[in-house]
Computed example of a mutant assay.
Amino acid sequence: MLFTQEVLERIAAGDVDLAFRRWRRPAVRPGTTLRTAVGVLAVEAVDAVDEDDVSDQDARRAGYADRALLLADQRPGADRTLYRVTLRPAGDDPRVRLRQDTDLTAAELDDIAAALARMDARSSHGPWTTATLELIAAHPAVRAADLAARAGRERLPFKADVRKLKERGLTESLDVGYRLSPRGRLVLDHVRRRTD
């Protein structure tokens, strides 16, 4: 589920606790957690609802001024069902803490480097982890499409690979492009020393 930054901030503040989506089938289930720019959100309930059952109060709880605006913002389609999703803040994104963690031993750095090497070995397009870290280090805040072109890759597969690095706390997304996290800079320096 995607949210605007304004809605995310209102969820974090406790002003918004519902979302409405028109889906062919639910994209989330109760118990799902979503990592967002304001932390982790927990999905508490997912209920199919009829448009007539959506009130102005529901709309305000979802960040809209009224039900008409909420309903106008939904995807059209007779094959879609309207779902009400109940949300709550569930803590900080663990990747944020991981990105800042640079208190690593040489053995831990070796383990991370080995994990990156395994990712390279499994890749259908050859080794990419170090090259991608180097590219982001050299070109922070550059659009993903431009970085992908520099790497000679398609944008979406490139972004998918960057997300794998983000999961390990090595990169962070910016409004435009990416940058290495403190942990990512430390790991890249370690990998460089190993290959010198």
Rank of each mutant, 00 (worst) to 15 (best):
R88S: 11
V54D: 01
D47Y: 00
A117W: 00
T36S: 13
A138N: 07
R143V: 05
D120W: 00
H139W: 09
R163S: 12
I112M: 08
A137W: 12
R99P: 14
D161R: 13
T129E: 11
D120A: 03
S123C: 08
P157R: 11
R95Y: 09
A160N: 14
A90S: 13
R88D: 03
D103C: 02
L165I: 08
R143A: 15
L82V: 12
A37R: 15
E44M: 00
R155L: 01
R143S: 12
R88K: 09
T32R: 04
R97A: 15
E134A: 10
A117N: 07
A148L: 03
R150V: 04
A115T: 13
L165G: 06
A131Y: 01
D103G: 13
G126Y: 08
R168A: 02
E44Y: 01
I136R: 09
T171V: 11
Q57F: 14
V38T: 15
T36Y: 10
V38Y: 13
T129D: 13
D92G: 14
D120F: 01
L133W: 10
L116K: 08
V162W: 05
E44W: 01
L116D: 13
L135R: 07
D101G: 10
T36I: 06
E134T: 10
A144F: 06
V46C: 07
D79V: 02
